[in-house]
Every structure is written in structure tokens, then in C-alpha cells.
């Protein structure tokens, strides 16, 4: 195989695996005569997606913006908290156990509480997306700060740098690759959060659409919703990966740049 063919094959691999998976699914459904209500065939799901794309799109966009709103909050909050935890050993020992405890709580348990507080609608979904996705950001940013070389600290101190100067000139730039690496993880979690909230109780978004479809035994539409979420997930993940690549070229210096 020439180098060019290898490259093309690598580019084609995700599509090939996807095709194999879908064809296998289709054939299995046909071979074992699986009723559509249990597991619809991929071709049926595609059919529904094409037929009902306008409704799907509307509900998708609702979910997308609640997710992104929660995600943006998570970035802002996670960055600040991560900087605080990473910069101060006192904040670290004070907050870290609490954060871990909070992260261990299944977020599905807090959605009903959020609904009591915030009613139904977009707000609980935004908040769920936020609380589920800020944790990796905090941990990563804090790690980036905590792993500053001791020599670098000595150097800054000997230059007479204030804590603030050390943070802005060394800490924050150094934490950036860690932040961007966490965004990819976080944004997919944010989707989990908002769809979770919509599914537990909501009147909008793709989660709600799936819930009401399955209540009508319309499995094909439910699965269409799943596909839509997966697609959006890939989209935002790719966007985050692109941003990461652009912002932290110095951290991925293994690859030839330019």
C-alpha cells in the first residue's frame, strides 16, 4: 500500500466502521424479524429522519442552545474555580473533597430538585448541563496550575513577581492546553445533562421529543432522536478539538507545524 492509499484509508475508516455497524444492524433485524417497537431498522430510522426533519431540527436546536448555554457557564465557572483550586493550597484542601462528593452524585437525582426550584422549561436543562460538565474543567485547569515547575516559581519570585503576575504570566498560559483538553470531554457531558433534564421532565428539546415518541410506541422517532443527539455531540466535539488545535499549537509540538 502506498502512503497515499494509507492516508485515504485512515480518513475513510470512521465511515467504513459506521457503514459496517449499520448494515450489520439492518441485516440482524431482518434475519431475526425484530419487531420495530423493540428495535427499528436503521433504514426505518433514516426514513423518519427525512420525513420529520423539520420537527427534529426544531427540537434539536432547543437542546443545542440549552447545552451550549450550560457549557459556557461551565467554562467560566470551571476556569475560575480551577484557577482558585490550583493556585491556593487552602482552597484546594477546602474545596476538593466537596467537589468530588458533588461529582459523585448522580445528576439525575438533582433534576427533580431543580424543577421544584426553577419550574420546567429551558432553565433546569441549562443548569443540569452546567453542573454535569464543569467538573472536568476544574480538575484540568487546577492540574495545569499545580504542575508548574518549582524552578519556574523560584524564577518568578526572584524577579519579584507578585502572585498575580505569576498566575497571569505562567499559570494561565500553562493551564490553557489542559483547559482545552477538558472542553472536549465537558461538552459531551453537557449534552448528557441537558437531554437528561429534558427526559426526566420537560416540555422541550430532543429529550422531550424522544420521551413522548416512546410513550406513543414510536420507536423509530425515539431512535431518530438518539441519532440526532449523537450527531450534535460529534459536531460540538469537533468544534472543541479544532479550537484546541488552534489555541495550543505549542503544546502539540510533536506534529510538524505549518
Amino acid at each position: 500500500m502506498t502512503g497515499r492509499q494509507r492516508r485515504l484509508l485512515r480518513l475513510a475508516m470512521p465511515w467504513l466502521t459506521l457503514a459496517v455497524l449499520l448494515i450489520g444492524w439492518e441485516l440482524a433485524c431482518l434475519a431475526f424479524v425484530v419487531p420495530e417497537i423493540i428495535l427499528p431498522r436503521p433504514s426505518r430510522i433514516m426514513e423518519v429522519i427525512v420525513q420529520r426533519w423539520d420537527i427534529l431540527l426544531r427540537f434539536c436546536l432547543e437542546t443545542l442552545w440549552t447545552t451550549l448555554a450550560g457549557f459556557v457557564m461551565a467554562i467560566a465557572f470551571g476556569l475560575l474555580l480551577g484557577l482558585a483550586v490550583g493556585a491556593s493550597p487552602f482552597v484546594y484542601s477546602g474545596l476538593y473533597p466537596l467537589l468530588i462528593a458533588f461529582n459523585a452524585i448522580p445528576k439525575v437525582a438533582i433534576v427533580p430538585i431543580l424543577m421544584i426550584w426553577l419550574g420546567i422549561g429551558a432553565l433546569p436543562a441549562v443548569v443540569t448541563a452546567f453542573v454535569i460538565s464543569f467538573f472536568p474543567i476544574v480538575v484540568n485547569v487546577a492540574t495545569g496550575l499545580a504542575t508548574i515547575e518549582p524552578e519556574m516559581r523560584d524564577l518568578m519570585r526572584s524577579l519579584g513577581a507578585s502572585q498575580w503576575e505569576t498566575l497571569t504570566k505562567v499559570g494561565i498560559p500553562r493551564a490553557m492546553p489542559y483547559l482545552f483538553a477538558s472542553l472536549k470531554v465537558s461538552v459531551t457531558l453537557a449534552f448528557v445533562g441537558s437531554v437528561l433534564s429534558e427526559t426526566v421532565g420537560g416540555n422541550r428539546g430532543i429529550g422531550f421529543l424522544m420521551l413522548s415518541a416512546s410513550a406513543r410506541n414510536d420507536s423509530a422517532t425515539t431512535f431518530a432522536g438518539l441519532f440526532a443527539i449523537a450527531l450534535m455531540g460529534i459536531g460540538v466535539y469537533a468544534a472543541c478539538a479544532l479550537v484546541e488545535q488552534r489555541m495550543t499549537r505549542w503544546a502539540v509540538r510533536g506534529q510538524p507545524s505549518r
Binding site: E151, L155, S158, L159, G160, V170, P173, R174, M176, W250
Partner: peptide
Amino acid sequence: APIPGVGMAFQNSTLMPW
């Protein structure tokens, strides 16, 4: 306290890669 007017260089160059 750390005195002003000092320059330091270590074995590990600690240059900032960014």
C-alpha cells in the same frame, strides 16, 4: 525576602513553550 536585582538560570531551562 527575595531580593531584587537577581537573575537565575537552572539546569532545566524553564523557557515558556508558548
